[in-house]
Amino acid sequence: MENYAIEVKDVSKGFKTFELRRSGSFFHRLWRKRSWKQALSNVSFRVKEGEIVALLGRNGSGKSTLVKILSGILHPDSGSVRVLGFEPWKDRIKLAARLGVVLGAHSQLFWNISARDSFEFMKGVYSINEREYSQRLKYYLKVLSLGEVFNRQVRSLSLGEQMKCNFVASILHKPKIVFLDEPTIGVDLPSKIALRNAVLDLRAREGTTFILTTHIVEDITMAERVILLNNGSIVFDGSRKQLESMFGDKKHVELRLEEGSAVDFRRYGKLIEKSGDVVKIEVNKSTLKNQRFLRMLNDKSVLDYRVAEPGLNFVLTKFYAKMDRKR
């Protein structure tokens, strides 16, 4: 029997925005224009308990809006939402006790006092009993190597340390589901890795469900499943591997050329990048079997070459380009 942590059906949400007009007469332009932005259109998906899902999309694609609707912060215009069996808007309080949220752009921590103080505050907010609180705190301080850092003033911590502390603050009350909204903006690599490990650990030990929204590709490696949002609609919902091999009929070939090389690599594929003596071209998979191409690779002036998968960044760029062309 499947237990769905999240069930979203035909959810839509729009906002009115206040903009200044750019055209029209002088006085016309003085008055603001109210326009409507459709942030989400008929979004539907389900997430099972214990899944780690990455919600990808460019800025303005609706990811944050979706997370806020799932948290009960925003009210959807239409559609139905169930998180852990609760309707987020109506039963926000009951859901909140089982929900952890890290909003990357906004800290839950008090600025001038130590992170420890903020954790104590959380203990009070969620009425966590002392024993469980100190056990969890001790464990996660270790997992995230926050050791002595958590006794320092939050304002003196680096962004990475702050993010890790925010994460701890959001999971102290043993939530069944955690939303991470752009948690790694401006954060250093070691901290990103630490977060990834903590997420996987939490899922393994407690079966916590995670939704991670991001537009940074490297973050997705902790998720098995990717949902891609574009202009408020889901354009891809599948495994990460599926996404990576989406434009799998293409390969990237990197060539290191001798100075003055006359090799005409352009006839085999599109030039993607050129830096110094290295060029990167995009070729069809079939080209790799082409005799002329193979001969070119063995040319004297080709000092070295490498064949690789396009990579997620590239896949996404092409995906977006395809989406934009359709509009």
Partner: peptide, 9 residues
Amino acid sequence: GFKQELVYR
């Protein structure tokens, strides 16, 4: 600044 003011008119 003028425009900004009238936005919040």
